[in-house]
Nucleic acid binder design. Structure first.
Lengths: 180, 180
DNA sequence: GTCTATATTCTGATAGAC
DNA sequence: GTCTATCAGAATATAGAC
Protein backbone atom coordinates (compact mmCIF):
# COMPACT_ATOMS: atom_id res chain seq x y z
CA UNK A 1 0.00 0.00 0.00
CA UNK A 2 1.52 3.33 -1.07
CA UNK A 3 1.62 5.91 1.66
CA UNK A 4 -1.49 8.07 1.37
CA UNK A 5 -1.05 11.51 -0.13
CA UNK A 6 -2.08 14.54 1.90
CA UNK A 7 -5.04 14.90 -0.43
CA UNK A 8 -6.20 11.37 0.35
CA UNK A 9 -5.68 11.87 4.06
CA UNK A 10 -7.94 14.92 3.89
CA UNK A 11 -10.67 13.02 2.06
CA UNK A 12 -10.45 10.18 4.59
CA UNK A 13 -10.76 12.65 7.47
CA UNK A 14 -13.72 14.29 5.74
CA UNK A 15 -15.51 10.95 5.43
CA UNK A 16 -14.75 9.99 9.02
CA UNK A 17 -16.15 13.23 10.36
CA UNK A 18 -19.29 12.94 8.25
CA UNK A 19 -19.89 9.39 9.48
CA UNK A 20 -19.12 9.97 13.16
CA UNK A 21 -20.58 13.40 13.76
CA UNK A 22 -22.61 14.39 10.71
CA UNK A 23 -22.41 17.40 8.38
CA UNK A 24 -22.87 19.95 11.15
CA UNK A 25 -19.53 19.03 12.67
CA UNK A 26 -17.68 19.16 9.37
CA UNK A 27 -15.79 22.44 9.41
CA UNK A 28 -12.63 23.04 7.43
CA UNK A 29 -10.78 23.37 10.72
CA UNK A 30 -12.08 20.04 12.07
CA UNK A 31 -11.26 18.20 8.83
CA UNK A 32 -7.79 19.71 8.72
CA UNK A 33 -7.11 18.81 12.35
CA UNK A 34 -8.15 15.21 11.86
CA UNK A 35 -6.12 14.91 8.68
CA UNK A 36 -3.11 16.31 10.52
CA UNK A 37 -2.71 19.42 8.38
CA UNK A 38 -3.47 23.09 8.85
CA UNK A 39 -6.48 24.86 7.43
CA UNK A 40 -4.26 26.48 4.82
CA UNK A 41 -2.76 23.13 3.95
CA UNK A 42 -6.21 21.66 3.40
CA UNK A 43 -7.26 24.56 1.22
CA UNK A 44 -4.28 24.01 -1.04
CA UNK A 45 -5.69 20.60 -2.01
CA UNK A 46 -9.37 21.49 -1.83
CA UNK A 47 -9.94 25.13 -2.63
CA UNK A 48 -13.33 25.30 -0.93
CA UNK A 49 -15.73 23.28 1.14
CA UNK A 50 -17.59 22.52 -2.05
CA UNK A 51 -14.46 20.93 -3.48
CA UNK A 52 -14.65 18.35 -0.68
CA UNK A 53 -18.16 17.45 -1.81
CA UNK A 54 -16.89 17.10 -5.38
CA UNK A 55 -14.09 14.84 -4.17
CA UNK A 56 -16.56 12.63 -2.35
CA UNK A 57 -18.77 12.34 -5.41
CA UNK A 58 -15.79 11.43 -7.55
CA UNK A 59 -14.74 8.80 -5.04
CA UNK A 60 -18.10 7.09 -4.77
CA UNK A 61 -18.31 6.95 -8.56
CA UNK A 62 -14.91 5.30 -8.93
CA UNK A 63 -15.34 2.91 -6.00
CA UNK A 64 -18.80 1.97 -7.25
CA UNK A 65 -17.45 0.93 -10.64
CA UNK A 66 -14.73 -1.16 -9.00
CA UNK A 67 -17.17 -2.75 -6.56
CA UNK A 68 -19.62 -3.81 -9.25
CA UNK A 69 -16.72 -5.20 -11.26
CA UNK A 70 -15.69 -7.23 -8.21
CA UNK A 71 -19.30 -8.45 -7.94
CA UNK A 72 -19.30 -9.63 -11.55
CA UNK A 73 -16.16 -11.66 -10.91
CA UNK A 74 -17.18 -12.94 -7.47
CA UNK A 75 -17.24 -16.77 -7.25
CA UNK A 76 -20.33 -16.62 -5.00
CA UNK A 77 -22.27 -14.76 -7.68
CA UNK A 78 -23.57 -11.23 -8.03
CA UNK A 79 -26.69 -11.68 -5.91
CA UNK A 80 -24.93 -13.17 -2.89
CA UNK A 81 -22.14 -10.62 -3.20
CA UNK A 82 -24.74 -7.85 -3.15
CA UNK A 83 -26.65 -9.13 -0.14
CA UNK A 84 -23.59 -9.97 1.91
CA UNK A 85 -21.89 -6.67 1.24
CA UNK A 86 -25.10 -4.76 2.01
CA UNK A 87 -25.06 -6.31 5.47
CA UNK A 88 -22.49 -3.88 6.75
CA UNK A 89 -22.29 -1.58 9.74
CA UNK A 90 -21.31 2.08 10.15
CA UNK A 91 -17.84 1.26 11.37
CA UNK A 92 -16.95 -0.87 8.34
CA UNK A 93 -13.71 0.56 6.98
CA UNK A 94 -13.82 -1.10 3.56
CA UNK A 95 -13.41 1.81 1.16
CA UNK A 96 -16.72 1.50 -0.67
CA UNK A 97 -18.67 1.16 2.57
CA UNK A 98 -16.87 4.03 4.24
CA UNK A 99 -17.51 6.32 1.28
CA UNK A 100 -21.13 5.21 0.95
CA UNK A 101 -21.89 5.85 4.62
CA UNK A 102 -20.28 9.28 4.39
CA UNK A 103 -22.27 10.12 1.26
CA UNK A 104 -25.52 9.10 2.94
CA UNK A 105 -24.93 11.77 5.59
CA UNK A 106 -25.27 14.43 2.89
CA UNK A 107 -28.44 13.18 1.24
CA UNK A 108 -30.87 16.06 0.90
CA UNK A 109 -28.19 18.69 1.44
CA UNK A 110 -26.56 18.72 -1.98
CA UNK A 111 -28.42 17.91 -5.20
CA UNK A 112 -25.23 16.51 -6.73
CA UNK A 113 -24.93 14.09 -3.81
CA UNK A 114 -28.47 12.86 -4.38
CA UNK A 115 -27.74 12.36 -8.06
CA UNK A 116 -24.57 10.41 -7.31
CA UNK A 117 -26.32 8.23 -4.74
CA UNK A 118 -29.23 7.53 -7.06
CA UNK A 119 -26.75 6.59 -9.78
CA UNK A 120 -25.07 4.22 -7.35
CA UNK A 121 -28.31 2.42 -6.44
CA UNK A 122 -29.52 2.47 -10.05
CA UNK A 123 -26.37 0.81 -11.32
CA UNK A 124 -26.80 -1.94 -8.77
CA UNK A 125 -30.41 -2.39 -9.76
CA UNK A 126 -29.38 -2.81 -13.40
CA UNK A 127 -26.73 -5.34 -12.46
CA UNK A 128 -29.14 -7.33 -10.32
CA UNK A 129 -31.61 -7.41 -13.20
CA UNK A 130 -28.94 -8.93 -15.42
CA UNK A 131 -28.60 -11.81 -13.00
CA UNK A 132 -32.15 -12.36 -11.83
CA UNK A 133 -34.77 -13.32 -14.39
CA UNK A 134 -37.88 -12.06 -12.67
CA UNK A 135 -37.93 -8.25 -12.37
CA UNK A 136 -40.05 -8.31 -9.21
CA UNK A 137 -37.54 -10.59 -7.51
CA UNK A 138 -34.74 -8.26 -8.54
CA UNK A 139 -36.69 -5.36 -7.14
CA UNK A 140 -37.23 -7.13 -3.84
CA UNK A 141 -33.56 -7.99 -3.46
CA UNK A 142 -32.51 -4.50 -4.45
CA UNK A 143 -34.83 -2.93 -1.88
CA UNK A 144 -33.54 -5.25 0.85
CA UNK A 145 -29.97 -4.20 0.13
CA UNK A 146 -31.00 -0.55 0.39
CA UNK A 147 -32.76 -1.33 3.66
CA UNK A 148 -29.68 -3.01 5.12
CA UNK A 149 -27.57 -0.02 4.13
CA UNK A 150 -30.05 2.34 5.71
CA UNK A 151 -30.01 0.36 8.94
CA UNK A 152 -26.23 0.39 8.96
CA UNK A 153 -26.23 4.17 8.58
CA UNK A 154 -28.53 4.30 11.60
CA UNK A 155 -26.06 2.36 13.69
CA UNK A 156 -28.13 -0.84 13.79
CA UNK A 157 -26.05 -3.98 13.98
CA UNK A 158 -26.57 -6.43 11.14
CA UNK A 159 -29.44 -8.77 11.95
CA UNK A 160 -28.51 -12.15 13.44
CA UNK A 161 -31.02 -13.57 10.95
CA UNK A 162 -28.98 -12.25 8.08
CA UNK A 163 -27.44 -15.51 6.94
CA UNK A 164 -30.83 -17.22 6.79
CA UNK A 165 -32.32 -14.19 5.11
CA UNK A 166 -29.68 -14.31 2.41
CA UNK A 167 -30.20 -18.03 1.88
CA UNK A 168 -33.96 -17.65 1.57
CA UNK A 169 -33.60 -14.87 -0.97
CA UNK A 170 -31.00 -16.76 -2.96
CA UNK A 171 -33.20 -19.82 -3.23
CA UNK A 172 -36.00 -17.51 -4.25
CA UNK A 173 -33.94 -15.86 -6.97
CA UNK A 174 -32.22 -19.01 -8.19
CA UNK A 175 -35.47 -20.86 -8.58
CA UNK A 176 -36.58 -18.13 -10.94
CA UNK A 177 -33.30 -17.80 -12.83
CA UNK A 178 -33.31 -21.45 -13.86
CA UNK A 179 -34.70 -22.07 -17.33
CA UNK A 180 -38.15 -23.57 -17.65
CA UNK B 1 -58.97 21.14 11.52
CA UNK B 2 -58.06 23.69 14.23
CA UNK B 3 -55.91 26.52 12.96
CA UNK B 4 -52.27 25.61 13.58
CA UNK B 5 -50.58 27.32 16.51
CA UNK B 6 -47.46 29.37 15.86
CA UNK B 7 -45.50 26.61 17.53
CA UNK B 8 -46.83 24.06 15.08
CA UNK B 9 -46.17 26.34 12.13
CA UNK B 10 -42.55 26.62 13.24
CA UNK B 11 -42.16 22.85 13.51
CA UNK B 12 -43.73 22.40 10.07
CA UNK B 13 -41.34 24.95 8.60
CA UNK B 14 -38.43 23.22 10.32
CA UNK B 15 -39.39 19.88 8.77
CA UNK B 16 -39.91 21.38 5.35
CA UNK B 17 -36.50 23.00 5.36
CA UNK B 18 -34.81 19.80 6.52
CA UNK B 19 -36.48 17.81 3.76
CA UNK B 20 -35.97 20.28 0.93
CA UNK B 21 -32.53 21.66 1.68
CA UNK B 22 -30.96 19.58 4.41
CA UNK B 23 -29.57 20.49 7.84
CA UNK B 24 -27.01 22.94 6.45
CA UNK B 25 -29.76 25.28 5.31
CA UNK B 26 -31.65 25.13 8.58
CA UNK B 27 -30.86 28.38 10.36
CA UNK B 28 -33.13 29.97 12.93
CA UNK B 29 -33.61 32.84 10.52
CA UNK B 30 -34.62 30.57 7.63
CA UNK B 31 -37.04 28.57 9.77
CA UNK B 32 -38.58 31.75 11.17
CA UNK B 33 -38.98 33.25 7.71
CA UNK B 34 -40.71 30.16 6.35
CA UNK B 35 -42.98 29.93 9.37
CA UNK B 36 -43.90 33.59 8.91
CA UNK B 37 -42.53 34.79 12.24
CA UNK B 38 -39.47 36.70 13.34
CA UNK B 39 -36.37 35.12 14.83
CA UNK B 40 -37.39 36.45 18.23
CA UNK B 41 -40.88 35.05 17.78
CA UNK B 42 -39.48 31.62 17.00
CA UNK B 43 -37.20 31.72 20.02
CA UNK B 44 -40.15 32.38 22.26
CA UNK B 45 -41.55 28.94 21.36
CA UNK B 46 -38.26 27.11 20.95
CA UNK B 47 -35.59 28.59 23.18
CA UNK B 48 -32.70 27.19 21.16
CA UNK B 49 -31.89 25.28 18.02
CA UNK B 50 -31.64 22.17 20.13
CA UNK B 51 -35.24 22.65 21.24
CA UNK B 52 -36.28 22.21 17.60
CA UNK B 53 -34.53 18.85 17.56
CA UNK B 54 -36.35 17.90 20.76
CA UNK B 55 -39.63 18.92 19.20
CA UNK B 56 -38.98 16.75 16.17
CA UNK B 57 -38.13 13.74 18.34
CA UNK B 58 -41.29 14.23 20.35
CA UNK B 59 -43.33 14.45 17.16
CA UNK B 60 -41.96 11.31 15.57
CA UNK B 61 -42.59 9.40 18.79
CA UNK B 62 -46.22 10.48 18.99
CA UNK B 63 -46.96 10.06 15.30
CA UNK B 64 -45.29 6.64 15.33
CA UNK B 65 -47.57 5.41 18.09
CA UNK B 66 -50.62 6.67 16.23
CA UNK B 67 -49.46 5.16 12.94
CA UNK B 68 -48.89 1.71 14.39
CA UNK B 69 -52.28 1.90 16.06
CA UNK B 70 -53.79 2.69 12.66
CA UNK B 71 -51.92 -0.31 11.24
CA UNK B 72 -53.37 -2.65 13.88
CA UNK B 73 -56.86 -1.50 12.98
CA UNK B 74 -56.35 -1.44 9.21
CA UNK B 75 -58.76 -3.70 7.31
CA UNK B 76 -56.01 -4.65 4.84
CA UNK B 77 -53.87 -5.99 7.68
CA UNK B 78 -50.64 -4.85 9.31
CA UNK B 79 -48.30 -6.27 6.69
CA UNK B 80 -49.98 -4.67 3.70
CA UNK B 81 -50.41 -1.42 5.61
CA UNK B 82 -46.67 -1.43 6.32
CA UNK B 83 -45.58 -2.14 2.76
CA UNK B 84 -47.99 0.28 1.15
CA UNK B 85 -47.18 3.11 3.50
CA UNK B 86 -43.45 2.51 3.09
CA UNK B 87 -43.86 3.11 -0.63
CA UNK B 88 -43.90 6.85 -0.22
CA UNK B 89 -41.98 9.69 -1.76
CA UNK B 90 -40.18 12.75 -0.33
CA UNK B 91 -43.03 15.09 -1.14
CA UNK B 92 -45.64 13.04 0.73
CA UNK B 93 -47.31 15.44 3.15
CA UNK B 94 -48.94 12.86 5.38
CA UNK B 95 -47.76 13.83 8.86
CA UNK B 96 -45.90 10.65 9.73
CA UNK B 97 -44.10 10.58 6.37
CA UNK B 98 -43.19 14.25 6.52
CA UNK B 99 -41.77 13.90 10.01
CA UNK B 100 -39.93 10.69 9.18
CA UNK B 101 -38.29 12.20 6.09
CA UNK B 102 -37.24 15.24 8.10
CA UNK B 103 -35.80 13.05 10.85
CA UNK B 104 -33.80 11.02 8.34
CA UNK B 105 -31.96 14.19 7.32
CA UNK B 106 -30.47 14.40 10.79
CA UNK B 107 -29.29 10.81 11.13
CA UNK B 108 -25.68 10.80 12.23
CA UNK B 109 -25.81 14.39 13.42
CA UNK B 110 -27.60 13.98 16.72
CA UNK B 111 -27.37 10.85 18.85
CA UNK B 112 -30.91 11.41 20.18
CA UNK B 113 -32.18 11.44 16.60
CA UNK B 114 -30.52 8.11 15.89
CA UNK B 115 -32.06 6.65 19.05
CA UNK B 116 -35.52 7.90 18.09
CA UNK B 117 -35.23 6.56 14.55
CA UNK B 118 -33.99 3.18 15.74
CA UNK B 119 -36.91 3.07 18.18
CA UNK B 120 -39.24 3.81 15.29
CA UNK B 121 -37.91 0.97 13.10
CA UNK B 122 -37.65 -1.40 16.08
CA UNK B 123 -41.28 -0.87 17.03
CA UNK B 124 -42.32 -1.69 13.49
CA UNK B 125 -40.18 -4.79 13.51
CA UNK B 126 -41.85 -5.98 16.70
CA UNK B 127 -45.28 -5.34 15.25
CA UNK B 128 -44.44 -7.20 12.04
CA UNK B 129 -43.23 -10.16 14.08
CA UNK B 130 -46.58 -10.29 15.85
CA UNK B 131 -48.29 -10.76 12.50
CA UNK B 132 -45.83 -12.93 10.61
CA UNK B 133 -45.03 -16.37 11.92
CA UNK B 134 -41.61 -16.90 10.42
CA UNK B 135 -39.01 -14.45 11.85
CA UNK B 136 -36.93 -14.51 8.67
CA UNK B 137 -39.95 -13.50 6.61
CA UNK B 138 -40.65 -10.68 9.07
CA UNK B 139 -37.05 -9.58 8.77
CA UNK B 140 -37.23 -9.56 4.98
CA UNK B 141 -40.40 -7.50 4.93
CA UNK B 142 -39.04 -5.11 7.55
CA UNK B 143 -35.86 -4.57 5.55
CA UNK B 144 -37.83 -3.91 2.36
CA UNK B 145 -39.87 -1.24 4.11
CA UNK B 146 -36.66 0.40 5.30
CA UNK B 147 -35.28 0.22 1.77
CA UNK B 148 -38.38 1.87 0.31
CA UNK B 149 -38.13 4.66 2.88
CA UNK B 150 -34.48 5.16 2.09
CA UNK B 151 -35.22 5.41 -1.61
CA UNK B 152 -37.95 7.94 -0.93
CA UNK B 153 -35.52 10.06 1.08
CA UNK B 154 -33.20 9.96 -1.93
CA UNK B 155 -35.91 11.34 -4.17
CA UNK B 156 -36.49 8.08 -6.06
CA UNK B 157 -40.05 7.64 -7.25
CA UNK B 158 -41.80 4.56 -5.92
CA UNK B 159 -41.11 1.60 -8.17
CA UNK B 160 -43.75 0.80 -10.81
CA UNK B 161 -43.30 -2.81 -9.71
CA UNK B 162 -44.44 -1.97 -6.24
CA UNK B 163 -47.91 -3.41 -6.42
CA UNK B 164 -46.61 -6.76 -7.66
CA UNK B 165 -43.84 -6.64 -5.12
CA UNK B 166 -46.34 -6.17 -2.31
CA UNK B 167 -48.50 -9.00 -3.60
CA UNK B 168 -45.57 -11.40 -3.85
CA UNK B 169 -44.47 -10.61 -0.32
CA UNK B 170 -47.97 -10.90 1.06
CA UNK B 171 -48.43 -14.33 -0.48
CA UNK B 172 -45.04 -15.21 0.94
CA UNK B 173 -45.97 -14.10 4.45
CA UNK B 174 -49.52 -15.41 4.43
CA UNK B 175 -48.41 -18.86 3.35
CA UNK B 176 -46.24 -18.97 6.44
CA UNK B 177 -48.77 -17.53 8.84
CA UNK B 178 -51.32 -20.21 8.10
CA UNK B 179 -51.31 -23.09 10.56
CA UNK B 180 -49.85 -26.33 9.36
C1' DG C 1 3.19 22.26 -0.32
C1' DT C 2 2.29 23.72 4.01
C1' DC C 3 1.91 27.19 7.55
C1' DT C 4 0.17 31.64 10.28
C1' DA C 5 -2.52 35.63 10.40
C1' DT C 6 -6.38 38.15 9.08
C1' DA C 7 -10.66 39.83 6.72
C1' DT C 8 -15.48 39.08 6.17
C1' DT C 9 -19.72 37.04 6.68
C1' DC C 10 -23.08 34.45 9.12
C1' DT C 11 -25.36 32.29 13.06
C1' DG C 12 -27.26 31.47 17.56
C1' DA C 13 -28.77 33.80 21.30
C1' DT C 14 -29.96 37.94 24.52
C1' DA C 15 -32.31 42.31 25.88
C1' DG C 16 -35.87 45.02 25.86
C1' DA C 17 -39.88 47.67 23.38
C1' DC C 18 -44.68 47.03 22.17
C1' DG D 1 -46.64 36.58 22.14
C1' DT D 2 -44.24 38.78 18.81
C1' DC D 3 -41.08 42.19 17.23
C1' DT D 4 -36.36 44.94 16.44
C1' DA D 5 -31.69 45.72 17.63
C1' DT D 6 -27.52 44.02 18.90
C1' DC D 7 -23.50 41.12 20.40
C1' DA D 8 -20.20 37.39 20.81
C1' DG D 9 -18.43 33.43 18.66
C1' DA D 10 -17.60 30.67 14.70
C1' DA D 11 -16.86 29.54 9.86
C1' DT D 12 -15.18 30.18 5.09
C1' DA D 13 -11.84 32.01 2.51
C1' DT D 14 -7.71 35.06 1.30
C1' DA D 15 -2.85 36.83 1.63
C1' DG D 16 1.51 36.13 2.12
C1' DA D 17 5.73 34.04 4.73
C1' DC D 18 8.60 29.96 4.67
Amino acid sequence: MPKPSAREKVMDAYEELLIEQGPGAVTLEAVAARAGVSKGGLLYHFGSKDALVEGLIERIGQLGVADREAARNAPEGVVRYYLESSATDVTDDKAIHHTTMATMRLIGSEPRIDVAMRAYTDEWRLLLNEHITHPVTAEIIGAIGDGLYFRASLGVDPSPLLKELTDVLLRFSEKETEPG
